[in-house]
Design a protein around this nucleic acid. Structure first.
Lengths: 256, 256
DNA sequence: AAACTGTAACCTGTCGACAGACGGCATCAT
DNA sequence: ATGATGCCGTCTGTCGACAGGTTACAGTTT
């Protein structure tokens, strides 16, 4: 059977569905989201669609112009840089807070993740590497014991992760990243919160700077970087309604 | 005529209204928000109410337990501490980013605000003081040039500001606060981003520590601190529906 | 030919209604 | 008397429909 959908309300399922579609880039930025079209596609009335869309809008994943419909939000390189900077601030704080609280088992969990990342790096399993990387950073926030920090960071990570496919090339080498993680971990093991924080700041700053350079030296398409609008406005070509998913009602609808 | 309400959709007006009511503490934490009651009160159908409630929930101002209704979210002292910490991280980053970008006129605007705060402090005009204080900190974020930082900070500030009435006593002396602001401003004028950041961290940390102490030494109600649930669960006494605003349809409804 | 205007179609915003679920209360059994 | 159980009321979740607004297109005018 499908996931634990049973106890969720309709709009929550729609929300999850749309969020996944957007994250997976199956609904690229600029796609227009018509309520009626969606309600047909998903075999749900417009109410839940609208409700879900509201949440997505509040989360910044779609933009809603009153009376003019909604579309998947495009993001500029500049905004991505902004998000990275905020993420840096949060993670540095997380490390600072977490360091004095860490138990042996916490450190072991972190170490495991770094080991896992190292293994993936060796196998050039980029996707797996970044999955583990993401878990590592989220775990840091969790271990900070600060719920609010965790919440805000999670939101940011989602937003950034949506474009991870395009940002992979922006990171330093995978091995370098592993070393940085090990260094952070070592500092935390020693209880040196300040050093760990500084290392974290440097670590998160790497992709930020790369991005910044990309932004400054605009017009240097070394690879197909579709999905990034350079610096200026972020208006994507107007995908029309027919660009909505063409498949049936929905996995969780008994199709009857 | 009423404010610039004209071009807003109904649910946006409802959202603004409820948000204001909650912020002004006219809808205290724990108040149950019945859709039908609200729709009667505001002379709007349940659709917009629901839409607005969704946004408020996404913003953390109300909690919605599916099928069991919504209520104004209560906050624990611990959560408030968390928010303060995140705010510290954000403002430190903001100062660091802003310092190298500041123009003469930016510095003047900041100085004006500090002067204004000093004046209010001298007159013991606490409310005005904190208003200016809030503007100062928001301006810092704005001057960072980082939109995302500004957005997240604004959201946090709102959330915290909701309880400012109760946190006033937690601040250091007003004069001390003014000095701290002046020190930060001086460091920024000299372009010393790191020093300004450190001063900011210390400055924001003051109420955090006070809060923490309050939390640790729980059970010390030196003044009527209703609105704070101590550390543990945050279930307020079940205000019943009749605790909703008793006044007419709504300012923006021509009452006809 | 280009610009303007009127019309038509589509879409969103809003409303009222129905069904299922949750909570409270009274009744019954132990 | 106390606990369990079934019923009832109320509320939310969802749906379908109507009205107003916006966009696109066609016809007309300059």
């Amino acid at each position: 059977m499908a996931p634990a959908f049973e106890n969720l309300t309709l709009w929550q399922r729609v929300y999850d569905h749309l969020r996944n579609e957007i994250m997976a880039d199956r609904l690229p930025p600029g796609t227009e989201l018509s309520e009626v079209a969606l309600s047909r596609e998903l075999s749900v009335s417009r109410g839940p669609i609208r409700e879900a869309m509201g949440r997505l809008a509040a989360e910044g994943l779609v933009t809603v112009r009153p009376r003019r419909g909604a579309e998947v939000r495009a993001i500029t390189t500049g905004e991505l840089v902004d998000s990275y900077q905020v993420r840096e601030a949060l993670e540095v704080m997380a490390v600072r807070l977490a360091t004095p609280r860490l138990t042996e088992s916490d450190l072991d969990r972190l170490e495991e993740l770094v080991d896992s990342m190292a293994a993936h790096a060796k196998r050039e399993a980029v996707a797996d590497f970044f999955a583990a990387n993401g878990v590592f950073h989220e775990l840091l926030c969790e271990l900070s014991g600060n719920k609010k920090l965790q919440e805000v960071h999670h939101r940011l990570a989602s937003e950034i992760g949506r474009f991870q496919a395009q940002t992979l090339a922006l990171r330093g080498s995978l091995d370098g990243s592993v070393s940085e993680h090990r260094a952070i971990l070592a500092a935390m093991r020693l209880g040196d919160a300040e050093r760990a924080a500084a290392l974290t700041a440097a670590h998160v700053r790497v992709p930020t700077q790369r991005l910044q350079e990309t932004l400054d030296g605009a017009g240097d398409p070394e690879d197909g970087d579709r999905g990034f609008q350079d610096a200026g406005a972020a208006i994507s070509p107007p995908h029309r309604n027919q660009s909505l998913p063409r498949r049936g009602p929905l996995p969780w609808q008994p199709s009857g």
